[in-house]
């Protein structure tokens, strides 16, 4: 493995989903390079796509809307089953904190596309990962917020972002900022690829 390949592999490996952030806001210069990365993907895979970056009060308003859905808590509860017994109490507190603040990151990226077409959804997730890796390389952390509620999605798109809910759907919501936690060790299990 050459030096560049090792560096890329380490950056990919070090990217972890973070659910608790410091309030410190990254500089605009750091964010600018991150938000330019989707251009390069879109040149290879043109799709209808818009990226909205929410900071400060704008982020808080979006968080208040997203917190209305129980689906975030439901998803975290599923993860609770996978946490070792000795960490379950800690994880319950951690869940409560996340549900209240959605991580408290200073920045929220919302990626929107026409998800009626699965191709657009898939390309959007190439973009999401590109954003997360670029952020990692800039010394920042990210984490996806997933929820499944049509009414909350509609309120975010139409009521808040003032976009056409018939045309746009949310492909991803990403927190971004400086981590205020060390994530649990990641288990990579074998048998997920084969080479012929």
């Amino acid at each position: 493995m050459n030096k560049l390949s090792s560096f890329v592999f380490d950056t990919i490996k070090e990217r972890r989903t973070i659910r608790k952030y410091k309030p410190d806001a990254p500089t605009k210069d750091l964010i600018r390079r991150i938000v330019e990365v989707p251009y390069f993907i879109l040149q290879d895979f043109p799709i209808p796509f818009e990226l909205v970056i929410l900071e400060y009060e704008a982020r808080e308003k979006a968080v208040r809307i997203m917190r209305q859905t129980y689906s975030i808590a439901k998803d975290l509860a599923i993860l609770h089953n996978m946490v070792p017994d000795e960490l379950k109490d800690w994880y319950r507190e951690y869940m409560k904190n996340f549900i209240n603040t959605l991580g408290g990151a200073p920045i929220l990226f919302i990626g929107l596309t026409d998800t009626d077409n699965i191709y657009n959804w898939n390309v959007s997730w190439i973009i999401a990962q590109a954003i997360m890796i670029q952020a990692k390389a800039e010394g920042l952390d990210t984490g996806s917020i997933t929820f499944s509620s049509k009414s909350v999605e509609k309120e975010l798109i139409e009521g808040y972002l003032r976009m056409d809910n018939n045309k746009w759907k949310i492909a991803f919501v990403l927190n971004c900022g400086y981590r205020d936690e060390e994530p649990m060790e990641k288990q990579i299990k074998g048998g997920i690829y084969e080479i012929y």
Partner: peptide
């Protein structure tokens, strides 16, 4: 392929994908 295994996988451990590399 190893790099591919370090993507986020949310609620679906072990990882929600299967890759077959062919040469």
């Amino acid at each position: 392929l190893d790099a591919g295994t370090y993507a986020p996988y949310g609620l679906n451990p072990p990882q929600p994908w299967k890759f077959i590399g062919i040469l």
